[in-house]
Design a protein around this nucleic acid. Structure first.
Length: 353
DNA sequence: AATTCGGGGCG
DNA sequence: CGCCCAGAATT
């Protein structure tokens, strides 16, 4: 296998030194792979380190509440990853005696673990010859074999799975898969690949035809839906009034300032006032706008304004609203741009002391 | 097969 | 701004 040999020779000289590569413990590999789903290595590094300090073992994580787990995850995005990881380690404790299964099909049964992650864990932690096909691998192989099919299609993925099984190292499958990651991040990058540095350049069909810049082919994504929101900032006795988002949907279970979605034809302050009244059975007075953010998600674009609010009467709060002390803002997971506002308010509060 | 899940970094 | 990133679950 000339491809595997050249790739591993390159990897032995150029592999990245990453926090989760210090050993091949299955729990650590699992955590790192989940964090790395659709997330850049540079971002994950600090999250991973803090995570391992707080949850050094599978058992330690299994005993933790979902809210605390989400707090350690906040800012990473795709919060179902954290929920699934938590229920996954609990399942391993209950069903497998605390030991992560050692083959890809069994690993893939765990929540939040798909084909890619199962292959990555099986190959890295247990030296199984399982492909781990992510965006890097799709890009590299579409160039190596000059595949002009859309890499987001399942048929293309099956084709590449076959190619990898034909070419991967059976002695070092974990290193083979990780070498592809490193090659994809340092050499065979999305724009302007550095083919002069590539250990596989002599094997690369796209390089031979000089089409590496137009591969891979993928379908363009849809434009995000635009949503206009208004949020109310209520401060009383050094505490902020916050509400918890529903248990399902975007940013599930995370906390935010009481928020309303604005329709075309209604006034911001009236809608905000009505929402806070109905949710909290409170009279409120909406003041001036303190913050304004355009926050773009992959599929949604929030245009959100934060208004200062004041109580006029009453003191009854209906679930799930809570008062959160300005000095304990880090104890709950915040929803998106609400965290930025909370942080600013917290800093102002600290300076006033 | 298409949609829904976040967030950040970079040219 | 557009692009894409160590994807998976749901519909």
């Amino acid at each position: 296998m000339v491809l595997a040999t050249q790739l591993l020779d390159w990897y032995d000289k150029n592999s990245r030194d990453l926090p989760w590569r210090k050993d091949n413990d299955a729990y650590k590999v699992w955590v790192s792979e989940i964090m790395l789903q659709q997330t850049r290595v540079e971002v994950v590094k600090d999250y991973y380190t803090r995570w391992m300090e707080r949850f050094p073992t599978l058992e330690a994580l299994a005993q933790t509440s979902e809210q605390e787990v989400l707090t350690y995850w906040q800012g990473l995005g795709y919060y179902n990853r954290a929920r699934n990881l938590l229920s996954g380690v609990r399942e391993v404790c209950a069903e497998y005696g605390g030991k992560v299964p050692d083959n890809a099909p069994a690993i893939q049964k765990l929540p939040g673990v798909g084909e890619y992650t199962a292959g990555a864990i099986a190959s890295i932690a247990y030296n199984r010859p399982s492909p781990a096909i992510d965006g890097n691998v799709l890009r590299i192989f579409s160039r190596l074999f000059c595949l002009e099919e859309d890499i987001t299609k399942q048929a293309t993925k099956r084709k590449i799975d076959r190619l990898i099984r034909d070419h991967m190292s059976v002695e070092r499958p974990g290193d083979f898969n990780q070498a592809l990651m490193d090659l994809g991040s340092m050499v065979c990058i999305p724009q302007r690949p550095r083919c002069q540095l590539c250990p596989l350049a002599t094997l690369c069909e796209a390089q031979a035809r000089d089409v590496q810049d137009v591969l891979p082919v993928r379908t363009p994504k849809k434009a995000p839906l635009h949503i206009k929101l208004a949020a109310g900032i209520v401060i009383q006795s050094s505490s902020l009034l916050i509400t918890q988002r529903p248990a399902t949907g975007m940013l599930a279970g995370m906390w935010e300032f009481p928020t309303v979605e604005l329709a075309e034809d209604d006034s911001t302050s009236e809608r905000l006032k009505t929402r806070i009244k109905s949710d909290l059975q409170q009279e409120v007075c909406v003041g001036k706008r303190l913050f304004h953010y355009i926050h773009t998600f992959s599929h949604r674009k929030w245009d959100i304004s934060f208004y200062q609010c004041q109580w006029l009467a009453g003191n009854t709060i209906s679930f799930p609203a809570h008062w959160l002390g300005l000095s304990e803002l880090d104890t709950v997971p915040w929803a998106g741009p609400h965290r930025k506002v909370a942080t600013v308010l917290g800093e102002q509060f600290t300076q006033e002391l």
